[in-house]
């Protein structure tokens, strides 16, 4: 079965469906509702037997680079353009088909925004490479 990574982002991606302000300015109830929705996604995917894992990522990021033998790693923490992608977390799913992965992603995108309506956020869908051996005859 193919596996897909459904990536949520703090920012970046195609143009937003409508404005969604940063979550730290939402009403607490709206934050709770969104988080409850995400847990529900995980629960639903476990129940359908499709969940591989669900993870959230910290917002802070650092880029690291090899700097030569015996030299400490070179790091940078920005600044980055405001539009650069910043992943927020993912669901990895193990599904029958690509169509099913897209269907799940669309559902994840329907989580409530600051007003309680569907956020319509963009979910990035990436197929995970498998380790299958092709037919060799």
């Amino acid at each position: 079965m193919p596996r897909y990574l459904l990536l949520k982002h703090y920012r970046g991606g195609p143009e937003q469906h409508h404005e969604v302000i940063p979550m730290d300015r939402w009403a607490p109830e709206a934050v709770d509702a969104h988080m409850a929705f995400l847990r529900e996604c995980g629960r639903m995917l476990e129940e359908t037997g499709e969940l591989v894992e669900a993870q959230a990522l910290h917002e802070e990021r650092v880029y690291v680079q090899y700097a030569g033998k015996d030299a400490p790693p070179v790091t940078t923490d920005g600044p980055y353009p405001e539009t650069s992608d910043l992943a927020a977390g993912w669901y990895m799913v193990d599904v029958e088909s690509r169509e099913r992965a897209l269907e799940i992603a669309a559902f994840v995108s329907s989580g409530p925004d600051q007003h309680g309506g569907p956020m319509h956020e963009w979910i990035e869908v990436r197929q995970v490479m498998d380790d299958g051996v092709p037919d060799e005859d």
């Binding site: 596996r3 476990e46 129940e47 037997g49 894992e53 193990d94």
Partner: peptide
């Protein structure tokens, strides 16, 4: 064998 968590596989089988 299918690289999924046990809870997921248990659900798949019971469904």
């Amino acid at each position: 064998a299918f690289l999924v968590p046990q809870a997921t596989m248990a659900q798949r089988i019971s469904r």
